[in-house]
Design a protein around this nucleic acid. Structure first.
Length: 429
RNA sequence: GGAGAGGUGGCAGAGUGGCCGAUUGCGCCGCCUUGCUAAGGCGGUGUACCGGAAACGGUACCGGGGGUUCGAAUCCCCCCCUCUCCGCCA
């Protein structure tokens, strides 16, 4: 949610931002919001004056004699009816304004590249070499099935497509990457969190997933709860509605959770293997800090660096891309994706997504802090990034570290999490 | 799932129809007293919106939403949450 004052001051910039995100209908919401805002502001002075009169008269009424009282009572009933009409109008306008304002996307930063979709994201840097294997490379799913580590057939029979069973050493590796990720982040000063995975609409709305993301979300209608697609939702919402002290900021969290995504509208896309699945585990980093753009930008660089440290420890080549306008979500002001090299895809595949929001989420969440100098409360800035998502990360791990005989080398950083083993799997025929 | 008690400002905690946007305490800010520290005295201190250059004025807000009333933190209804007891249970 943007401040309505930003729309009043510079509607053109907000409209242009929505268009940069390739969301023309959301750009139209800017004008609808301003129209409603103007109507509301035209209404309020007269309504307030009317209410003021009513309030005073009511107060006086308490002190009148019974005879005078009767006469004034009739007058007051009239006023009451007038106020009721205007209040109804006010309520409607406020609700409509809120709804339109919620549709207005965050304005992308100037540094966000122009572009229509992910093919126009701009590479910022690369790390690591895409080595020449010198033997036929097995796709991760074939390798994993051959090792007895993966069963997608029975998972589909049981739970539908895009589900999986992991077994044996791959199940252990899955857990190892997650635990490594948490340790890495705890070492870097983040507070570990195990959040709820079922949340009310308020948290989905507050983080900007609703309205718009309903089709991507599993919903437990009976209880009015939603399964989260990322721990960003509960963790960023953690202090929603609260007034933090500046001394408490920044807050840095690292959360591990199950993540659930319906993947509606992706039929036929990434159908193979463990790339796009309905349920996965993710370790997510979230930062809440003061309203300072420069600081947000620095945090953004840091959370990208945290993810790069993990990929480097996993010895996986990757690149960082600046996400273009058309591929940017509604609430984000700027986003970097990190993509690891995946031989079976013959390309880089997204493993991390680092977003900064400024106060867009905090406004929706009413997440505020009181500045040290005792000034007016301000909305916080929020950011988040993946630390690791698994099983997706297992794709490059298996594919890049496989050996000619079908065994898989374990990077040194992960060996402590596998009881010191440096290789997993048996020699395949 | 059943029974009860509660949800009030940054925090704690009064307030059962008009004198309440709300006593008081803590915290915070300013001034004063005081060799330092500790302690004390006086004053100030909620949020949002509207109007205003500002001073300031107005309105709304006592978990959320409806209702009764000229008037609601206070009475009624629905929902959410917290706590205690009982039941069930990984």
């Amino acid at each position: 949610m943007l401040d309505i004052k930003v729309l009043r001051d510079d509607p053109g910039a907000v409209r242009a931002g929505a268009l940069k995100k390739r969301l023309p209908d959301r750009a139209a919401a800017v004008d609808r919001a301003l129209q409603l805002d103007a109507e509301l502001r035209a209404l309020l002075p007269s309504l307030d004056a009317l209410r003021s009169g009513q309030k005073q008269a009511s107060k006086a009424l308490g002190k009148l004699s019974p005879a005078e009282r009767e006469q004034h009572l009739q007058q007051q009933k009239q006023v009451k009816a007038e106020v009721a009409v205007l209040e109804e109008r006010e309520k409607q306008l406020r609700a409509d304004l809120e709804a339109q304002l919620a549709l207005v996307p965050n304005v992308p930063d100037p540094e966000v590249p122009e572009g229509k979709d992910d093919t126009e994201n701009v590479e910022v840097r690369r790390w690591g070499e895409v080595r020449d294997f010198g033997f036929p490379v097995r796709p991760h799913d074939e390798l994993a099935e051959a090792q007895g580590w993966l069963d997608q057939q029975r998972a589909s029979d049981m739970s539908g497509s895009r589900n999986y069973f992991l077994f044996g050493d791959l199940a252990l590796l899955h857990d190892a990457v997650l635990r490594f990720a948490i340790d890495l982040m705890v070492d870097r000063g983040f507070v570990p969190v195990d959040p709820p995975v079922l949340v009310r609409d308020k948290a989905m709305y507050g983080t900007g997933f609703f309205p718009g993301g309903e089709e991507q979300t599993y919903r437990c209608e009976k209880d009015g709860l939603n399964l989260i697609g990322t721990a960003e939702v509960p963790v960023t919402s953690l202090h929603g509605g609260e007034m933090l002290a500046e001394e408490d900021l920044p807050k840095r969290f690292v959360a591990r959770s199950g993540c659930f995504r319906r993947e509606a509208g992706t039929y036929g896309k990434d159908t193979r293997g463990l790339y796009r699945v309905h349920q996965f585990q993710k370790v997510e980093q979230v930062i809440v800090d003061v309203a300072d753009r420069e600081r947000s930008i620095r945090h953004h660089a840091h959370i990208v660096d945290n993810a790069e440290a993990l990929l480097q420890a996993f010895e996986l080549p990757y690149r960082v891309v600046a996400v273009c306008g058309g591929d940017l979500g509604v609430p984000q002001a700027m986003k970097y994706d990190i993509e690891a090299w995946m031989p079976s895809r013959k390309g880089y595949g997204e493993t991390h997504s680092a977003s900064r929001f400024y106060d867009y989420q905090a406004r929706r969440l009413v997440l505020r802090y009181r500045p040290k100098d005792g000034g007016k409360p301000l909305f916080c800035h929020t950011l988040n990034n993946t630390v690791v998502a698994s099983p997706r990360i297992l794709i490059p791990l298996l594919e890049m570290h496989q050996q000619p005989d079908g065994t898989v080398r374990v990077p040194a950083a992960l060996q402590p999490y596998l009881r010191g083993r440096s290789v997993i799997g048996k020699a395949l025929a």
